[in-house]
Design a protein around this nucleic acid. Structure first.
Lengths: 155, 155
DNA sequence: AAATTATAGTTTGATATCAAACTATTATGA
DNA sequence: TCATAATAGTTTGATATCAAACTATAATTT
């Protein structure tokens, strides 16, 4: 799933003939995601969707966590995570082991193959931000971030 | 589809321990979409997804257009639009008529039921922006918009 | 201790989405 | 004019996603 569907929001705004900012946000998001997938493909990684990447990125930060934890970290539904992890296991990016503390759950851990993606992810992310922020001053970037935070906290 | 999947982008940034701005964008988008769907439900409209709303909003602006046109306006694939319009027809929000200028296509037009949604959409959109921009000065809003435009144009 | 409630993860069902392949129509080139 | 290429929309297939229902385990209450 790409990040921004061209949203209901955006077209509401077109109707209003007012602010189309959220429209642009949607576009940014979709373009960025496309760029990410495209970059991954260049590195020969063609079997991952954005949410798979989210899981891997979460595991880079903290390896061996429960599905529940992953679901919360990537803001996905439990059942979605089940399927996502299933594919990652199949592709040998992660494996699951028993959770001694709670037998209802297992711990999802990176394989060596999974771990080897970390640097690639970092490169791709850096490139993305370089693209996004090209031509923006550090002040503008900081300001953008602050505004995004404020808006985020309004919901 | 909700607007922002919690994206690959966001977690790349977590890995980098740097900017999580795109992470927040994703969150904003998802929250906004949830609010929109929730608002629609309050008005008794429970059978529309965001992309359906995008189509309706596009038709509010210009009624009776081709599927191709809709696909371009809402940034969706042709095959997606086929299915989306099919549902809107079934729910009697739109109808299709022959396009005398090109017999490969038909014109998608709003029904009266569809047209009656315009005010509701406007109200909902206004409420959304009021929420999003609560506590922001007009200057901040304008600034945000400019920055969003710059970033959008970088892709 | 036993009964009840809550929870982790899975399964099932429905849906939006894209890509590929296809068909009928249109546009272009020879 | 006829042949070829392009295009609008549809169908098919695959996938990510959420919600509801479910089961086994854990937590809480009786």
């Amino acid at each position: 799933m790409f990040l921004f569907a061209y949203s209901l929001i955006s077209n509401y705004n077109i109707v209003m003939k007012t602010d189309n900012t959220f429209n642009l946000l949607a576009r940014i998001h979709e373009k960025a995601n496309k760029k990410l997938i495209s970059s991954l493909n260049e590195y020969g990684i063609t079997d991952l969707a954005p949410s798979h990447g989210d899981i891997l990125a979460a595991l880079f930060k903290k390896d061996c966590v429960t599905m529940m934890s992953i679901a919360q970290l990537i803001h996905r539904d439990k059942s979605t995570v089940t399927q996502l992890v299933k594919k990652l296991v199949k592709k040998n990016y992660v494996f699951c082991k028993d959770n001694p503390q709670d037998h209802r759950s297992s711990l999802v851990c990176l394989t060596d193959k999974g771990k080897s993606l970390k640097e690639i992810f970092q490169k791709i992310s850096r490139e993305l931000y370089e693209t996004a922020y090209d031509g923006l001053t550090p002040n503008e970037i900081a300001n953008f971030h602050q505004l995004v935070e404020k808006i985020h906290n309004n919901f």
